[in-house]
Nucleic acid binder design. Structure first.
Length: 228
DNA sequence: GCGACAG
DNA sequence: ATCTTGTCGC
């Protein structure tokens, strides 16, 4: 009999344990409309260094005018492998740590990854939302699972993303002619309000503005860890 | 057995 | 995600 290898990065959980935990936590996720009115929206993204470290960035924007309010980040070693379906165990800890560096308390958190559109209905956005007990929305650049009808080529076109018969998100064409993005609710959010929020965050590019800023910031910090 | 597979 | 140059097109 071989004991699970928890050395080299000492993951706190084995993949099998993580999957069991997801099945349990998925039952605590709440599906409901996002708050009708709120003032602060947070968005986050991460970048990875050759040193096996990662940088998690969280930015906040005023809502609904979308003016940048704050930027914070944390740098730490990567302690969980990338396994499709288990992304949150790799990124959520750093994201919540960065979140706690904020001075303002966000009302909604936009995450770079899936929410409900996950094999066990527990994507990154759900995990982060549960850990922080805040409404979250998942917005991914690629599909993880689920099927959908073709999406119109025009900006604003959408198709329901379904998994095992039930709706888990939307495939949304944020700009004419570009690849669509995948929007799904995290915690304390639902399909319609999640897509509505993302729509309002899209400006000139395919990626919603808050996520673009978080992504660009994470990239710059990776190339130049000196400057904020 | 053969693909698919968030970041 | 990250390693990497130029290239095609609006």
């Amino acid at each position: 009999m071989t004991a699970p290898d928890r050395s080299m990065g000492s993951p706190s959980l084995t993949p099998a344990e993580a999957i069991a935990l997801q099945k349990e936590l998925a039952g605590r996720v709440e599906l409901r409309p996002l708050p009708a009115r709120f003032h602060v929206l947070a968005a986050a993204d991460l970048s990875y260094l050759p040193s096996r470290e990662l940088i998690a960035v969280v930015v906040t924007f005023s809502w609904p005018d979308l003016q940048l309010l704050e930027k914070v980040h944390v740098r730490r070693p990567v302690e969980f492998p990338y396994v499709p379906g288990l992304l949150s165990f790799r990124e959520a800890p750093a994201l919540t740590a960065a979140f706690h560096q904020l001075e303002l308390r966000p009302d909604v958190f936009l995450c770079d990854g899936q929410g409900l559109a996950h094999p066990r209905r527990f994507g990154l956005a759900c995990h982060v939302g549960l850990l922080l007990d805040i409404p979250t929305v998942g917005c991914a650049k690629k599909r993880l699972c689920g099927t959908h009808d073709p999406v119109g080529i025009e900006k604003g076109s959408r198709s329901l993303l379904s998994l095992d018969g039930d709706p888990v998100g939307y495939v949304y064409r944020s700009r004419t002619g570009v690849k669509p993005i995948y929007v799904s609710p995290g915690h304390k959010a639902d399909l319609e309000s999640s897509l509505a929020l993302v729509e309002r965050c899209v400006r000139r590019y395919r990626i919603p503005e808050p996520l673009r800023v978080a992504h660009n910031t994470a990239t710059l910090l990776r190339r130049n860890p000196e400057f904020p």
